[in-house]
Design a protein around this nucleic acid. Sequence first.
DNA 1: AATTTTATTGAACAGTTGTATAGTAAATGA
DNA 2: TCATTTACTATACAACTGTTCAATAAAATT
Lengths: 188, 188
Amino acid sequence: MKTDMRIVKTKEALHEALLTLLDEKSLETISITELCRTARVNRGTFYLHYGRVEDVFEEYFREITADLAVSYQEPYRHVAVLKTSELDPDTIRIFHHVKKYERFYRIVFSKNVPLQYYYLLFEEVKGLLLTDPEAEVRVGIDAGLFSAYQANAIIGMLLHWCQHDFSYTVDELNRQLVRIVSAGTTGQ
Amino acid sequence: MKTDMRIVKTKEALHEALLTLLDEKSLETISITELCRTARVNRGTFYLHYGRVEDVFEEYFREITADLAVSYQEPYRHVAVLKTSELDPDTIRIFHHVKKYERFYRIVFSKNVPLQYYYLLFEEVKGLLLTDPEAEVRVGIDAGLFSAYQANAIIGMLLHWCQHDFSYTVDELNRQLVRIVSAGTTGQ
DNA sequence: AATTTTATTGAACAGTTGTATAGTAAATGA
DNA sequence: TCATTTACTATACAACTGTTCAATAAAATT
C-alpha cells in the first residue's frame, strides 16, 4: 500500500516551511510551534510524524547523502572513487558533492546541532569504502575498524574545510587527499 | 582577581546535581528546571552562567579532555604517543583514556547530543598530533588538513568502538592502530 | 568593622513543549 | 458511490523556557 496523500502533503509543507525559515535563522532557534505556524500544519500533526524540528531536517539530509551515493554508482567516470590506492584526483567526487550542498553541510557541521547527521554521513562514507572494489582486506586488520578509520579521516578533512569557511577549492582538496593517502604514513 | 566563592559554589552544586541525574536518565531528558531543583540553585542563577544543560556537561568534559593532554605531557613512558611512525602499541594512551572515561564518551558519542563535544575532542587530538616531535611536514601537504585527517581517523576508531559497545580491548585497538598506520595505504 | 560590590533569590510574565481527546475531513478500497 | 479507515484539527492542560526585576544575602575591598 502506498502512503496516504495527506501525509505527503503535510510533510511537504513542513519541508518547505523549514527551508523558508532556514533562510532567516539557524536550525536550533526554529521552534516546533513556529515551523507549524509557517507550514500551516497543526502542531499535533507534527508530533504524529516527528519528535523534533531536527527530524525534519534529517529527512532532507538523507536525500542529500543519497545523492552522494548515486554520484558514485553511475559507472561512467566516477567509478571506484574512494579507492585508497591508484587514487586519481579526477575521480574523487566527495568534495564536489559537499561543495554542491555547502549550505546544508554548514548546518550539519555546526556545533549546536545533534550528532545524528554526522552519523548519517559517517555511515554513508563507510558504505562507499566498503563497496570499494579494492577491498582486499589486509591480514590482521579489522575491516570495520579500518573503514571507520578511513571514512572518518576524510570527514576530518571536511570538518577542517568547513572550519575554514570552505576556502579551499575542490581541486585543491582532491590533490591533497591523493598526496596524504598515497604518501601513506610510513614512507616519509 | 580570583573568582567569587559564590560562583564556585553554584557551579559545584550544578556539577554535582548533573552527575546525580545522569545516573538515572540521559542528558537530553534533563531539564534546566530539574537540574536547578536538584542542585538547589535558583533557575535565574543558572542563566547567569549557562544557557543550556549541555553547557554544564561541556565544562566537565573539558576537564576530561585536559586529562588526555596531561597523560601525554608526562615524559616518562608516554612520550610521542601519537607519533605516526615508529608507533609502539605500549605508548598509545588514547584508548586507555577513553576506556577510563567510557561513561562520559558514551554520552559524547550519543546521537542526540550536540556536536560541540565532538569538536572539543577533535581539537584536543589535533593538538596532540601537532605537538608531535616528528611533525616534519611533508612537502605539498597542508599541515592543518593533514592533522585534521589523522586526528579524525583515530576518532573514527573511537566511534566504531563506541558503536560496538566498547567490546574491543584497549590492547587490541592499540595493535590495530599500529597495523593500520604502519601498513599505510600504498604498500598493500 | 564598615562599606561597596555583586551573586543569588523569588516572583512574575508570555511563549513553547509534550500529550491527550473528541470532532471533522479526506483519502482509500470495494 | 458508499462505507471504512485514518490523518488532521481545535482545544485544553501541566510543565518547562527564557527573561526581567526589586529585594536580599554574601562575598570582596578599604
